[in-house]
Design a binder for these strands. Structure first.
Lengths: 245, 245
DNA sequence: TCAATCTGTATGTCCGGACAATCTGACTAC
DNA sequence: GTAGTCAGATTGTCCGGACATACAGATTGA
């Protein structure tokens, strides 16, 4: 049976993107079964009235996502394994929301403070210069899940406490026109101090999962530095990795 | 000043790859400074005697690596931030070796065992069928750093204890012709049991960093399932993430 | 003075074709 | 029977061109 594919040339959506989305949907939906050959590019292009480079571009984007594997002389196959999504720069808020956990946020602190040496180094600003300090408690089902402490350089965008309570920090940044580009992360663990334990309803000395992150926008500016602690009984980092070819 | 670029058409190395490597080296070396424009593609292609698609392919590969940013109507810029390497599917052995830590491995167990339900589900084999069980202690500077417990389906390759002591598991798999494709990881934390604490020279109840991982090859087979525990005072997961556009 | 418009420039998308490299499977020779 | 060889199939690389689109800065108008 042939897969039903078609493209709309009057649409402003690029042709290769239309095709890659349809293929991805077919894989997701199970119409294209794992291990099945995709059929050769030439014929596929002819069937759709597209050129081979356009078809290749569509296929390539799915190869980059890890959904397809190409083999010279063989063809293009759907990957067997259950690839869900290759690790993205995710926000805890979005993750929880996607998991249907209806996250809540309590803003504990939202003020300007002088940058410590550590924060200044991470954000690339002068020591003791003003930076935003935001402390938040993230809850799911009424239970505390994580304590988030973030520092942001001033003047980036308006840090409204009400907005911080109803959405995630990354979403606010994107809405403010900031193009996130990359982040440097560090995940570790340590025993909870008494203050940390109190905030997260754990006991002193209980194991905590920690994450530090500096996020950069596409101009190379550091736009956020965060120190987060998670309750390991409630949260763990799950992600899919791709081997870079 | 113009960057010195050249391609060797007699080389079997693809032209776009030659170019991307030279550009990457120039960025690494500082010849191309962060924020500098790369010069437009048309002229670059003309200067090198290449076509624009080839130049674009070279540039695109560096954009995918996060080293360059393209802006329509503006040009292609070198990213400011200190991108080191976007998260790879790394092996602890390679990581330690790259950090100059001269890792040592002590193989505690290397035998065939019947697969438990958990292992069978992860590897996609029948329950109670034979699988390899490998337990290793990874040390750096004579200090235990991590306890690694791995399960592998039988018949993949020869699991030699001596080789396991002198190199990493991933390197052995690659050497055996297995093409690693993706992995599903989960990073968490928990308190050490007495047995775990003894192995890692920690105290019972001390926080441990945990990682579970299933690795797949390019045919979709699960080739390895691992449960690792790390001493958080000695090890943390550090990596760079890219925002997928 | 400030805002809207225009224009140049650079990347984004798309085409059609050509040849090379590699894998699979069948055929052939020993 | 086994190993080597060959042919077909399919992706990999590369070319040259065309037009669309978006951004930045200069120009123009109010």
């Amino acid at each position: 049976m042939q897969l039903e594919l078609s493209v709309d040339r009057s649409s402003p959506v690029p042709l290769y993107f239309q095709l890659s989305q349809q293929l991805e949907a077919a894989i997701e939906h199970g119409t294209l079964t794992p291990g099945s050959l995709l059929g050769n590019e030439i014929e596929l292009a002819a069937r759709l009235g597209l050129s081979r480079p356009t078809v290749r571009q569509a296929i390539q984007s799915l190869v980059d996502k890890g959904l397809l594997v190409r083999r010279r002389g063989v063809g293009t196959q759907v990957v067997h394994s259950q690839v869900k999504r290759p690790l993205e720069l995710s926000s805890l808020y979005d993750d929880l929301e996607a998991a249907g956990q209806r996250p809540a946020t309590r803003v504990l602190v939202n003020k300007l403070v002088p940058a410590s040496a550590e924060v200044a180094a991470a954000l690339g600003v002068a020591e003791d210069s003003d930076v935003h300090r935001v402390e938040r408690l993230r809850l799911a089902h009424g239970e505390p899940m994580a304590y988030l402490c973030n520092f942001l350089p001033p003047g980036l965008f308006d840090l409204d406490t009400d907005q911080l309570e109803t959405t995630g920090l990354y979403r606010l940044m994107r809405a403010a026109g900031i193009t996130l580009h990359s982040a440097r992360q560090s995940i570790g663990a340590r025993a909870a101090t008494t203050a940390e334990a109190d905030r997260l309803a754990e006991e002193t000395g209980a194991p905590l999962l920690t994450m530090q992150r500096v996020t950069f926008d596409d101009t190379g500016r550091a736009v956020e530095y965060g120190t987060h602690t998670y309750r390991p009984t409630r949260y763990s980092f799950e992600f899919q990795l791709l081997v870079r070819p």
